[in-house]
Amino acid sequence: MGTDRLTAYPERWLGGTAPGGLALPPARPNRIHLYAPRGVYMDDDVIVVADSGNHRVLIWYGWPGNDHAPADVVLGQADFETEGPGLFHLPTGVAVIEGRLFVADAWHHRLLIWDRLPEENDQPPDHVLGQPDLAGTAPNRGGEVGPTGFYWPYGFAWIDGWFYVADTGNRRVLGWRGIPEDRRDPDLVLGQPDAYLNSENRGKGVGEDTFRWPHALAGDGRTLFVADAGNHRVLGYTPPPEKDRPAELVLGQKDFTGSFELPHVPQGPRRFRFPYGIALFGDLLAVADTANSRVLLYTGLPREGAYHPASHVIGQTDFDGSGENRWQAVAWDTLCWPYGIWFHRNRLAIADSGNNRVMVWRVEFS
């Protein structure tokens, strides 16, 4: 893994098995199989997975006692055998915040909230953000870009009293002091001059204050990290911004104006191709380097500067590897297009989308 201070190994596999070295979903959904999951959350009590390809969210109560364990609850479908867009259209980010379940219903351009963790199948949400009501599903509430609408909100985060949304299609990050249940205007619009503009890279080109596809967020109260997937980089803001301003940190590029991406060559420890996920555990930062089918780990949390190297890699045997399942077969320690990731203490959950599974890795320091 790179040093003797950190070791990581897979501990649990959720989703179907991989006969013949492939993990394929069945023709009809069930309680076990997943189809292109893009989001995952875990804590001591639950594991929640955005089973994106099946347009549903699955919940496991407690730590699964074995691999391929069946889910306990399904949301967005009447039962475990139903599929297709309904309540959800490509759900992505999921998290439990202060006992409440949040789901980024990305292609319905909204976030859905349950006041308590659902214990019944197909339980309806209690609140919606980004739309006037639960019937609304149009981008930007059916109008032009504004402060209270979303366009493909793929990710969100609750950090040190701030609620952030990666409003991906509007190329911005929105932030509220507290959770905006009253649908009030955001306290922060990051990446655009105001709440009524949504140009790619602000219409001026890649810079220290622009986004192409902001996709996921993490932070610790000292720094806000934004996975700017379309520019193949992660930006860091120290301290977390209270108004639009440039970032102090860029990972994945040599400087703040770069958006370099070159597939099928040795990638090394400094570059990304479409980093769609990000997670934080103490001073350990994890980045889902999605198109390189790996997760990069940074020890000694970087907060400023550019082009810092990762210290460890998950999913490949070394930093030069970038193949889907290492160009071989699905194995316990391989990845294929990992998307959402989540740290809970020293467990890292990975939505291994291309392998139609979620893998939970144990990360230990010695």
Score class of each variant (00 low, 15 high):
D4K: 10
L6A: 09
L6V: 15
A8Q: 13
E11C: 10
R12K: 07
G15Q: 06
P19V: 03
P19A: 07
R28T: 15
D45V: 06
V46Y: 06
V46I: 06
I47N: 01
I47G: 03
I47A: 01
G53K: 13
N54H: 14
V57P: 15
L58N: 15
P64F: 11
N66W: 14
D67N: 14
Q77C: 08
E83N: 11
E83M: 13
L90D: 14
T92V: 12
T92D: 13
I97Q: 05
F102G: 06
W107S: 11
H108C: 13
H109Y: 12
R110N: 09
L111W: 07
W114C: 03
R116G: 02
P118N: 05
P118G: 06
V128S: 10
L129C: 01
Q131C: 05
Q131I: 02
D133S: 10
L134Y: 01
A135V: 05
T137Q: 08
T137W: 02
A138Y: 08
N140S: 06
G142R: 02
G142H: 05
G143L: 05
V145Q: 14
P147A: 03
Y151Q: 12
W152K: 08
Y154V: 15
I159E: 09
G161M: 10
G161R: 05
Y164E: 07
T168K: 12
L174K: 15
P193E: 06
D194L: 15
L197E: 15
N201E: 11
R202I: 04
G207M: 04
R212K: 12
R212M: 11
P214I: 01
P214A: 00
G219D: 05
G219W: 04
G221S: 13
G221N: 09
R222Q: 14
T223I: 12
D228K: 09
G230T: 14
N231C: 15
T238V: 09
K243V: 12
D244K: 02
V250A: 10
Q253I: 00
Q253D: 01
T257Q: 02
S259M: 06
Q267A: 15
G268P: 00
R271T: 08
F272D: 03
F272Y: 10
Y276K: 10
I278R: 06
F281G: 07
L284W: 02
A288L: 10
D289T: 05
A291Y: 12
N292G: 03
N292S: 06
S293K: 00
R294W: 00
V295H: 00
H312Y: 02
V313D: 07
V313W: 00
V313Q: 02
I314Y: 01
I314C: 04
Q316F: 00
D320P: 04
A331V: 01
D333K: 07
D333G: 04
W337S: 14
G340Y: 15
I341M: 04
I341R: 07
H344N: 08
I350D: 07
I350R: 08
G354C: 08
N355S: 08
N355L: 05
V360C: 01
V360E: 01
W361G: 04
